[in-house]
Design a protein around this nucleic acid. Structure first.
Length: 918
RNA sequence: GGGCGGUUAGCUCAGCGGGAGAGCACUACCUUGACAUGGUAGGGGCCAUAGGUUCGAUCCCUAUACCGCCCACCA
């Protein structure tokens, strides 16, 4: 006997263990079946599951379970990402708490610490995915820094390098002065900041005049190498070609004409700081201006600025410079301004600095072209389609991708540097580059190149010591050429971009690659279309010659119940595990699926999940009802052969529900699928079928009871199957608990239903009639304030044979559900009856003294008025010549039919009101 | 500045050319032998505004307003 309520906590763990033990999630055990594959967007290995993950994983799991039940060989590939910056940051913070530092430890020891942290916390998010019920093939779990995946990364890097697509370049990058690493354009977030616009007067050489520039960053003026004005700007025309004296430094800088200068902005004259501004960098290139770098890697001012400012932070320098300018009388004015300032996208606190460094770049242009073409040709489809525009928009304006990071945690770039082969050449100590997948390969390449043995160095200082004595000199005969390993690591997204094939065994010729690539669906959020989706497309096409996935499903973004973006700082993060603890994983999953509509966002919070929990309870209890009435699955039951009308009807309804849910999941419309299942279970099975079968179980014939028991059990089984992708735990539990003999298999590998129901039209019509009758009686009872416990008589008048037969056949049901003392046909309507119209017939409820005539008249008149309004509307249409002439035939016929029905209803209502007066 | 979404019941959202829907909330009644994490019956909407297309517009088009997001933008 089932417990009175479902206790998720007790059940979930046990069921999860059963699934694991059964091996049901493993791919490859259906070699003859069609393959279906999904790769999970790998979460940060040391992170925690948030509600967005829960949605993302739930949708993937629905697909995986659905296709598995449909007999496919499903691979849902799980794994985690090393998340370079985020993880390194956490470990550095932990070290700081122990009064230690990354630099103090050194690279090797520090990485040991990170691996330790990964081991400690790395299981958590996977454990949370298990809590959710994710049916991924956990035996194939991967990590972006696994041996195999790392090999893929190295191979991709080396190939792209040898193809000339990866190169080193010295240009401005977005620099994070706290982490002291470059970040890519995508990792920059512009935030509106209240600042000040200072107008600074630059004296003009050999004159007593000034040119005034406006700036929000006065500290960068120490790196100015020009002042630019627009060539057409009359105000400044005379000054072009003259020289300004940069205040505080006394350095002369030219006044140049460049169209970059916008006469509308600021004063129309703009200071040019090529070393610290992207636009100025371009201006500097055009005018061959010198470039002065004035800051250190940590953001403090360097020794190329006047002594008083050296070592100051950017903020302190700004203050001091403003004060000094003011003291010198060179500050014309200052005004408050709100302007966009680049911040690092992760913490949103650190102001990024355009900074001149040498970095590794990937020229993605040729890859992007192919990625664009693939979507244009439909090889990959976005769902909803409009997200393709976002994808195109970015790829069509793509810029080289800065792939190097000055971090330690990540894939160290497989490049070794050596000294110039011609020692007299002035190439410095890192003149030769060997990009190879392994150190051995690098050794070989270098030894071939130099014709000498080499020696590896990982520390730059040691390397320099080894190499520096031999600049500009012949190398000693026994000298081993020092090779220095590139210290930088790759952007985390570089390895993520390979995920769809690196997890399948590439670069080896793996059978999995053959079978599961391209994957079927990528399920992800729109926030990583650029970061991840586009890059996977590029890498997949480039290295495999095929797109990595056929469909990209972009799902909603999850907001809190107030519609606010969730963030740790706001403290409005909804923890999915808390929701699972409170309401159960099934409740959360079902709620997420129901909310996964076509809009861009969804709002999720406890109240919605509570509704999901209530649905689980309903499912549990209706199963309990089945159990209490001895409804046990009958082997070989044939739904097409049931004889009882109500059973024929529920078979047809079940078939409809199966068709609806199936079509919706296929179309990736999860909300439609969940709602179709919900509607069938709640509004059809529980509300009507179960209620209608109660009288049968009490007083039906043996044959009817037996058939109804079998049909009920069958329908319940179909429900469990239909709901299993959404609510796997409770359905699996019920699947076992409702069986008296062991099931053939776990529900997770049961066959998805496919039902052919034909010839049930008559049964369906009859049941709809019965339901309408019962609803009609209930409605009248309620409006007439008939006590819920009181039983009343019913007579059916004006009914045709069909209606009379319907009532006779379903008398028990009608009397029970409508709480009647009798339900019989009659020739006339008894006095003192409340009435309502049902099809051709009038249903009368002789309430005698109970009836409130005024109330009954009001009720009928309201109904009549409503009907009359409808008739008027139909008439307006049908009398409109244009409508009659132009509307399609079927619409016309439909409107006429509806008008006739309404008129008939009105006539009967009129009669009923007339009789009331007697 | 460029682009993309949204505006439908108190709230959250479906619907997207032929009579306005769901869940939650609300009201009334009901401890009826599956279920109060429940049942029954209800109330509640000029489908943002203004034009247009159409026999017919919540739905298509064009503007407007408001809300939100993305990209570009540090004078």
């Amino acid at each position: 006997m089932l417990d009175k309520t479902f206790n998720p906590q007790d059940v979930e763990k046990r069921i999860a263990a059963q699934w694991q033990a059964s091996g049901a999630f493993a791919c490859g055990n259906r070699p003859e079946a069609e393959a279906f594959s999904i790769v999970i967007p790998p979460p940060n290995v040391t992170g925690r599951l948030h509600i967005g993950h829960a949605l993302n994983n739930s949708l993937q799991d629905i697909l995986a379970r659905f296709e598995r039940m449909r007999g496919k060989d499903v691979l849902w590939q799980p794994g985690t990402d090393h998340a370079g910056i985020a993880t390194q940051l956490i470990v550095e913070r932990q070290l700081a708490e122990r009064q230690m530092s990354r630099i103090g430890l050194g690279r090797e020891k520090f990485l040991e610490e990170v691996w330790k942290w990964k081991a400690e916390s790395g299981g958590a998010i996977v454990e949370q995915q298990h809590r959710l019920g994710a049916s991924a093939d956990w035996s194939r779990e991967r990590f972006t820094m696994d041996e195999g995946l790392s090999r893929a990364v190295l191979k991709v890097f080396v190939e792209l390098y040898k193809q000339g697509l990866i190169y080193k370049d010295k240009r401005l990058v977005n620099w994070d002065p706290r982490l002291q690493t470059a970040v890519s354009d995508l990792e920059v977030e512009s935030l509106e900041i209240k600042g000040t616009l200072w107008h600074v007067k630059y004296p003009i050489e050999d004159s007593d005049r000034f040119i005034t520039v406006a700036t929000t960053r006065p500290e960068t003026m120490l790196g100015d190498t020009a002042v630019a004005v627009h060539p057409d700007d009359e105000r400044y025309r005379a000054l072009v070609g003259k020289t300004a004296i940069l205040p505080l430094t006394g350095r002369p800088i030219p006044i140049i004409a460049d169209e970059y200068s916008d006469p509308e902005k600021g004063t129309g004259a703009v200071k040019i700081t090529p070393g610290h501004d992207f636009n100025d960098f371009e201006v500097g290139k055009r005018h061959k201006l010198p470039l002065i770098n004035i800051i250190n890697k940590d953001g403090t001012l360097n020794n190329d600025v006047p002594a008083p400012y050296r070592g100051l932070s950017r903020e302190a320098a700004r203050k001091k410079i403003v004060a000094d300018l003011e003291a010198a009388g060179l500050l014309e004015k200052s005004e408050p301004i709100t302007h966009a300032v680049p911040h690092d996208e992760k913490t949103k606190t650190v102001v990024l600095e355009p900074f001149l460094t040498e970095q590794w770049y990937l020229n993605v242009q040729p890859l992007a072209d192919k990625a664009i073409a693939a979507v244009e040709k439909g090889e990959t489809k976005f769902v909803p389609e409009n997200w393709a525009n976002v994808y195109f928009g970015w790829l069509k304006n793509i810029r080289p991708w800065c792939i190097s990071r000055q971090l330690w945690w990540g894939h160290q770039i497989p490049v070794w540097y050596g000294p110039a082969k011609e020692y007299r050449s002035s190439g410095g100590e890192r003149a030769s580059i060997f990009a190879e997948e392994t150190q051995d390969a690098a050794r070989k390449a270098a030894e071939d190149y130099y014709g000498r043995p080499v020696e590896f160095f990982s520390d730059e200082m040691e390397y320099k010591r080894a190499v520096s004595p031999y600049y500009q000199q012949p190398w000693p005969a026994d000298w081993r050429i020092p090779l220095l390993r590139e210290a930088d690591v790759l952007d985390t997204w570089f390895s993520s971009a390979l995920w769809p094939f690196s997890t399948l065994g590439w670069p080896d010729k793996a059978a999995e690659l053959e079978r599961y690539y391209p994957t079927n669906v990528l399920v992800t959020g729109f926030d990583i279309i650029f970061f991840w989706v586009a890059r996977m497309m590029m890498m997949g096409i480039h290295f495999l010659g095929q797109v990595p996935f056929k469909t990209v499903l972009i799902h909603n973004r999850v907001l809190d119940e107030q519609g606010a973006k969730m963030s740790k700082t706001k403290g409005n993060v909804v923890d999915p595990i808390t929701l699972i603890d409170e309401f159960g994983a099934d409740a959360l999953r079902f709620t997420l699926a129901q909310a996964a509509g076509q809009s861009r966002d969804m709002r999720i919070g406890p109240t919605r999940v509570e509704a999901g929990r209530n649905f689980a309870t309903k499912l549990w209890n209706t199963s309990r009802f089945c159990e209490m009435n001895g409804c046990v699955t009958v082997p070989g039951f044939e739904p097409g052969r049931v004889r009882e009308t109500v059973n024929q009807w529920i078979v047809a309804e079940t078939a409809q529900a199966v068709a609806d849910v199936t079509a919706a999941i296929e179309a990736l419309r999860f909300n439609d699928a969940a709602n179709a299942a919900y509607h069938f279970v709640y509004d059809i099975f529980c509300d009507w079928y179960v209620e209608i079968t109660k009288p049968i179980f009490q007083s039906g014939s043996n044959a009817a009871q037996a058939e109804t028991r079998a049909t009920t059990a069958w329908a319940r089984d179909q429900i469990l199957k239909l709901l299993h992708p959404f609510m796997p735990f409770i359905t699996e539990e019920l699947w076992a608990a409702t069986a008296t003999t062991p099931r053939d298999s776990l529900l997770v590998v049961a066959h998805w239903p496919s039902i052919k129901a034909q010839g049930a039209e008559a049964a369906s019509a009859e049941m709809h009639w019965v339901i309408e009758l019962i609803k009609g009686v209930r409605s009248v009872r309620s409006e007439m304030n008939v006590p819920a416990g009181a039983k009343i008589p019913l007579v059916l008048t004006g009914a045709d044979m069909i209606a009379k037969e319907r009532m006779a056949r379903n008398k028990d049901v009608i009397m029970t559900l409508a709480r009647l003392t009798q339900a019989d046909p009659a020739d006339s309507i008894p006095k003192g009856s409340a009435q309502f119209v049902l099809g051709e017939a009038v249903v009368a409820l002789p309430l005698g003294d109970v009836i409130d005539f005024a109330k009954e008249r009001a009720r009928l008149e309201k109904e009549l008025k409503k009907t009359q309004g409808e008739i008027d509307r139909f008439d307006a249409k049908l009398l409109n010549e244009q409508f009659v002439a132009k509307a399609p035939e079927e619409v016309l016929a439909e409107q006429r039919e509806k008008r006739t029905e309404a008129a008939a209803l009105a006539a009967r209502l009129g009669d009923a009101i007339g009789r009331l007066q007697n």
